[in-house]
Design a protein around this nucleic acid. Structure first.
Lengths: 227, 227
DNA sequence: CTCGCAGTGTATGGATCCAATCTCAAGACG
DNA sequence: CGTCTTGAGATTGGATCCATACACTGCGAG
């Protein structure tokens, strides 16, 4: 099960639109298209061998996912978050993700829990930043995977999307120095999940996000970096 | 300042798209297009004297706002919420709206507060359900109007949109019997806003939303009503 | 009488062409 | 020398036409 590619649920276009959207989504999440970068319809259309129309549809889908912004007659671009905005988005995550976890946790079966443990082992072995981001995202979204309330699940993914670039910048800066904390928190979260303890899991998760928010606020250089 | 029509911020199309989107948005929020109703592109295009293309764009915008859902080759429709989903959406509001209020409240000037008081007076005079819904929405969104973090403000509006139909059904059922509670809560909220007390205002607001959620859960007939 | 299948009708998705708007730069005027 | 204006180029938005996929109905077989 690939949670990462599961974004097309809820809002959809078709065939070509989906291909274009998937391409752009990956490019933005990988940081190949940085915040502030303008996306020209013709350029993408030509590169993917499609007409401009599915590109337009794809951009609307991405805007719905919070990965791009659009203005009439001015086109689309990757939104740039300021320090305050990033802070607030993290506060939103602190409040929403425990809710999503509470919805999902009671429905997580042994198979999912085994996969979570495998992911955490992979995270602990890993040293590459890009791979860490992918695994960490997969880990957390998998814990929410049984949350069947679409508005909540969709918004959580949106929030992950819009902060992905800055999470990468942060992880790149601090390197592996604080990686052990993430692992400790993940282990505590996993244990609470195994026990089916919604309250404890929610508390650990909220602390996990809050700690990251506070550490982020100590690194304003993330915003001046480039782009 | 008309907060209600302010939805086009953040995601935009142009001219024709905006007209179509505005038309459909109003129709859905007014309950003219009920949950579950399928929206045919040709029908809307013909009715508004435009081509189908701006309708497609408009539907994407509305999907981004949570007012419609779409699936490839199956078209668009107004989403129908189940009892559990509505419950969770209200829990999301309980957690997010105090955050939006905390961002906005310190920036509210006397002019806005005067307008809030005028709205509340209008709400207390009013007896019509449709007018109440409009005024109540205007009142609350105005308290969030100085929240300059777009992702938060946008999501709050989304949540109001997706619950609007059921709020109407609820208010229609209970009539004016419980209306005095809303007024009392609004007065407490207004007072906390005047004093600039973020904590108190947040607590009142959370209680306001929570009470509505609990009362809603006692009226399952809302979901079987029609549509 | 019910279930399954095929064919037709309808609605959505995509491509191409055209119009309108914005951007950027060069030149003229104060 | 700075600023405003005007123009050309580029880019987005809209309309029409065509292809494709789904849905429903009617017929036939079990």
């Amino acid at each position: 099960m690939d949670v990462t590619d599961d974004m097309t649920d809820g809002a959809a276009g078709s065939a070509a639109s989906l291909r274009v959207a998937a391409y752009l989504r990956q490019a933005i999440l990988d940081g190949q298209i940085p915040p502030g970068h303008r996306i020209r319809q013709s350029e993408i259309a030509e590169r993917l061998g499609a007409s401009r129309l599915p590109v337009r549809e794809a951009l609307r889908m991405l805007t719905a996912e919070g990965l791009t912004e659009q203005e009439p007659n001015k086109g689309a671009w990757v939104p740039r978050l300021g320090a305050r905005e990033l802070d607030v988005v993290y506060r939103m995550r602190e409040r929403l993700e425990p809710l999503a976890l509470a919805e999902s946790l009671p429905r997580l079966d042994d198979e999912v829990i085994a996969e979570l443990e495998a992911l955490q082992r992979a995270i602990e072995r890993n040293t590459d930043v890009t791979e860490f981001l992918r695994l960490d995202r997969e880990f957390h979204l998998l814990t929410y995977s049984r949350c069947e309330v679409e508005p909540l699940a969709g918004i959580v993914v949106r929030l992950w999307n819009s902060t992905q670039y800055y999470r990468r910048a942060f992880m790149t800066i601090i390197g592996e120095t604080r990686r052990w904390i993430v692992n400790a928190e993940h282990q505590l979260l996993l244990d609470a999940v195994r026990r089916g303890d919604v309250v404890d899991a929610g508390r650990v998760l909220e602390g996990h996000i809050r700690r990251t928010r506070v550490e982020l606020s100590h690194h304003p250089e993330i915003f001046t970096a480039n782009g």
